[in-house]
Design a protein around this nucleic acid. Structure first.
Lengths: 203, 203
DNA sequence: CAGCGATCATGACAAATGTCACGGCAAAGT
DNA sequence: ACTTTGCCGTGACATTTGTCATGATCGCTG
């Protein structure tokens, strides 16, 4: 019997997936949480074998939850589930110690199989997504460029970013200009959006 | 026996919700589609009583699907389900002829009840969301301001927007300025984002 | 060590974006 | 009929944003 933990902030989806997996004879949902920072505690309390982690969660995102799980309760393997297959997320998830990565676009019948494979110690990654992730490569952004984009994403103007990072406005704009070039964006906001979609602003 | 149609672009979520609702004795999922523009045809073919429509779908969004359903197969009532409770969406959905509006955040047990109530001819709207929707009121944007924001949202610069709408650049910037004020935004992109989140760019 | 490349930092300049005051026009109110 | 109100359209102006040339620093390599 494989003991499962579900982590997803949308209660409806969480409950629905629970009923889907409970149909399987060899699977058993033993815990459900709606926040990333409750995952480790719940997994330990319920002695879960596999944790299904959504990426978008309050408190701590699914990637961070996978990392925390590896550190705090390593006998429970992590299977990350997400709505969009941002290429960079796959890399980040695996680096964080996750055993698998599945998009919510896949047929519902395959989820149980993915869980079984992860429980058996195998890695599960959508092949197309893995290829895309490999092709996209790691983040092309330098440390400073990433800092600046993160700040812009919060909604700051370049002047405010300069103040926060103790830089001159010119410097900030220069980093932004570089980032705009590397992301094929047309302005700072778009660059921040693209970088975030590729998972370049989390590591 | 209530005959259900599920429309959601994420196959996994669609299947999970199907298994959740199939547990109920008086509910039966008779059709599933992944695109908004397939809803009417499928509902008619399966003689569905209630359609569960996600807002985010390719082809045609859930609001549009509800409208199409009312026009093309009115015996099937529409229950709109969405991830985020954008205030304006509630209003739009009801104006489009939907019988209910539920966020994916609600406990999974309540979904079946919502379906039953809709099937019985009642309206179902999350009370908190309804209040918020009422308080937010209709879109404060004028026709032109909406046009301009829609174009900006596609990724156009103000010069390109001006060309598309046959206006001078100054006029476009003026409408944008007004929209920025009305949305409490700090620049055009943010204004477009906020307006979209409130459902002001769909009607 | 010298040379190379990458990153960081800066200011000058150019281009875009946002604000403002103005006039025309049509619908609603007095 | 006259005023008021709101939306549309426009250009002048100020501000913000993006690009470029330049120099400093650091790690790596022949």
């Amino acid at each position: 019997m494989i003991r499962l933990l579900l982590a997803d902030d949308q209660a409806l989806v969480r409950g629905a997936i629970a009923s889907l997996l409970d149909l399987e004879d060899d699977l058993e949902v033993v815990a459900q949480v709606g926040r990333g920072d409750e995952v480790v505690e719940a997994a330990r309390a319920a002695q879960a074998d596999v944790a299904l982690l959504d990426v978008e969660m309050p408190g701590l995102d699914g990637i961070g939850a996978a990392r925390a799980l590896r550190a705090g309760f390593p006998s429970c393997r992590a299977l990350v589930v997400t709505t969009f297959g941002r290429p960079g997320y796959v890399r980040l998830a695996l680096e964080a110690g996750a055993s698998g990565f599945v998009v919510k676009d896949t047929p519902s019948g395959q989820l149980a199989d993915a869980v079984r494979r992860v429980a058996a110690g195998q890695r599960v990654v959508d092949p197309a997504l893995a290829a895309e992730s490999l092709a996209a490569g790691p983040s092309p952004l330098s440390a400073r460029e990433t800092d600046v984009l993160v700040a812009v994403r919060q909604g700051n103007s370049s002047a405010e970013v300069a103040a926060q990072l103790h830089l001159s406005e010119g410097t900030v704009r220069n980093h932004l200009s570089a980032a705009i070039g590397k992301t094929d964006a047309r302005n700072a906001s778009e660059a921040a959006r693209i970088a975030a979609e590729n998972g370049w602003l989390l590591a």
